[in-house]
Design a protein around this nucleic acid. Structure first.
Lengths: 219, 219
DNA sequence: TAGATTGTTAATCGATTAACAATC
DNA sequence: TAGATTGTTAATCGATTAACAATC
């Protein structure tokens, strides 16, 4: 029930995005093997994930798009919503503000902070900017639950500490530095350098391997 | 030997970063359990990963920082280097250009493209910009092996197809759209929305759970 | 030497997939 | 009905960790 893995939660997010696209196209029902295409997993995996939500499909119609999306939302989303703060209004920070603006009302960036106090008072993509030294006050006032760290690596640890001290319960960290946070704070790292290096490694290895004789499983 | 998993490659990248920091601090040798701190894994995992490289430590001194870093580089890096192109010179693209500028000579962004042709000819963080319609020509001329997709979601699939057609063997995709690429092209997705939703979900669940009685393993 | 660590195998753990009766 | 799909268990697969002799 309550013990759904990180990977499963990730997949549920992907399913939801896929369902949103289907709904926009006017599709009303969908089969597990169709959903599977959006993650590269198997249809059995999709059925298991959906089963864990407590939602049921029908052998003839599959799953009702709107109802399944509703079930996923019920499971993933906080009914009262969760408010997010961004720290670091550089190019990355601005990209994130643009990206999340008006995307999900229940998960919106309500404050942005920067060490450059001259940015305070501006409104970027609908989000108000503050100076770093206002962090504790604003985060409490705005009831912020989640912090996004988009500052240079040297500042990341200090910013993380400040956010945690201010009461944030989750961190999304773009800085290439491992953060130390108390157990009750969930930390997710997005490590762009690592991802690029992985692409570099595997693209090279694929190229060196040429066309593998058994690539399609035949001998 | 050649069958190292994706996860292991990711960890090797993290080990390397940690070793670089140690070297900068003048540390010359390190134990597996110290290296483990940078990934949250176990010391046995670190030892297994290093063993797979063919590098050996000593029971008394542990691993020599410089030599281990060299072994990792030999395994991960292309000796002749790999050249990268970026598509989409918005805020995200600019952040990536700044981020990778002068970082790794063997993995550098040598060209950036944008559908807004007025950006062509500029040089941003040392990287020359071109119009989209020059993609095939420049990628061949510059011997680009890897493409980074930092365009809006609507354009992502077309850009991916163009990059693959131009001869790129690996893609790092920031757009929230699953890409279809031939098998010889390695695709890594960075899904920012999914990551934020995961933080939202788990930070909420941790908060709701309160302080779990057995959080530290004691009953 | 004594002792902590390495290299390496076996055991464990968890996640994924195969399979199939039940269903509409 | 016939047939494809669902719900669900068992089997498989792979990755992680525990353990320990060998080492310096």
């Amino acid at each position: 029930m309550s013990s759904i893995s990180e990977k499963t939660v990730g997949r549920l997010c992907q399913y939801r995005r896929y369902l949103t696209e289907l709904a926009a196209d006017g599709v009303s029902s969908v089969y597990s093997h169709q959903i599977a295409s959006c993650t590269g997993g198997s249809s059995a995996q999709v059925r298991r994930d959906i089963m864990a939500l407590g939602y049921s499909g029908s052998p003839t119609k599959g799953y009702i798009v709107a109802d399944l999306a509703e079930s996923i939302a019920e499971y993933l989303d906080a009914p009262e919503g969760q408010r997010v703060a961004l720290v670091g209004i550089g190019n990355l920070g601005r990209a994130l503000l643009a990206f999340f603006a008006n995307r999900r009302p229940r998960l919106s960036i309500v404050a942005a902070f920067d060490s450059d106090a001259s940015k305070a008072g501006r409104v970027i993509h609908g989000c108000r900017c503050y100076a770093d030294y206002d962090m504790a006050r604003v985060i409490e006032k705005e009831r912020v639950a989640i912090g996004i760290i988009a500052v240079p690596v040297e500042a990341a640890r200090r910013v993380a500490d400040d956010l945690v001290a201010a009461g944030v319960r989750g961190l999304l960290n773009f800085a290439p530095a491992p953060l130390e946070a108390p157990k009750h704070v969930y930390v997710e790292d997005i490590d762009v350098t690592m991802s690029l290096e992985k692409v570099a490694f595997f693209s090279r290895r694929n190229a060196e391997a040429g066309r593998p004789a058994t690539a399609d499983g035949s001998s």
